Lab assay of single mutants.
Amino acid sequence: STGEEYIAVGDFTAQQVGDLTFKKGEILLVIEKKPDGWWIAKDAKGNEGLVPRTYLEPYS
């Protein structure tokens, strides 16, 4: 699937089932941008889950 690459600007630990845990500096592939501010993203290992958009910045 296609998506946009974003870099994590902080650590995030999953708070509920379906969230994706990530560390600062990780590159995430954003698959869907939901209007509530929680985006669906995939990490380098292929894990998929919800992430808070405030922790992400476009990666170029």
Rank of each mutant, 00 (worst) to 15 (best):
N47F: 05
L50N: 14
N47I: 12
I31N: 11
G10P: 00
D36T: 13
K23H: 10
Y59Q: 05
Y6V: 11
T54P: 06
D43H: 06
I31W: 07
V9D: 04
A14N: 10
Y6G: 01
K33D: 04
L50S: 10
T21A: 06
S1D: 15
K42V: 05
T54N: 11
N47V: 08
Y59C: 11
Q16N: 11
L29Q: 09
E5R: 01
K33Q: 11
W39K: 01
K24S: 04
D36I: 10
A8Q: 01
W39G: 02
I7S: 04
P58M: 07
E48W: 03
P52N: 15
K45W: 11
G37L: 08
G3V: 12
G49I: 01
E32N: 07
V51K: 00
K33E: 09
A41E: 00
G10D: 09
L56T: 03
R53W: 02
Y55K: 13
E32S: 12
G18A: 13
L29T: 12
F12Q: 14
V51M: 02
K33W: 02
G3A: 07
K45G: 13
A44G: 11
L29H: 03
D36P: 03
V9C: 11
V51S: 04
P35A: 08
Y55W: 12
A41P: 00
V51G: 02
A14M: 08
F12D: 01
K33V: 08
G25K: 10
W39Y: 13
W38Y: 15
L29G: 11
E32G: 10
G49H: 02
E5F: 11
N47R: 09
F12V: 03
V17W: 01
G37V: 12
L50Q: 14
I40Y: 08
Y55I: 12
F12R: 15
I7D: 01
R53G: 12
A44W: 08
G18Q: 14
R53Q: 14
A14K: 08
P52R: 15
A44H: 10
G46N: 06
G46F: 04
T21P: 13
E48T: 10
G18D: 11
D11Q: 07
L56S: 00
E48I: 03
L28E: 00
K24I: 02
G3E: 13
V51E: 00
D19Q: 15
S1C: 12
T2I: 12
W38V: 15
Q16I: 03
Q15W: 02
E32I: 06
Q16T: 11
L56K: 00
G49T: 01
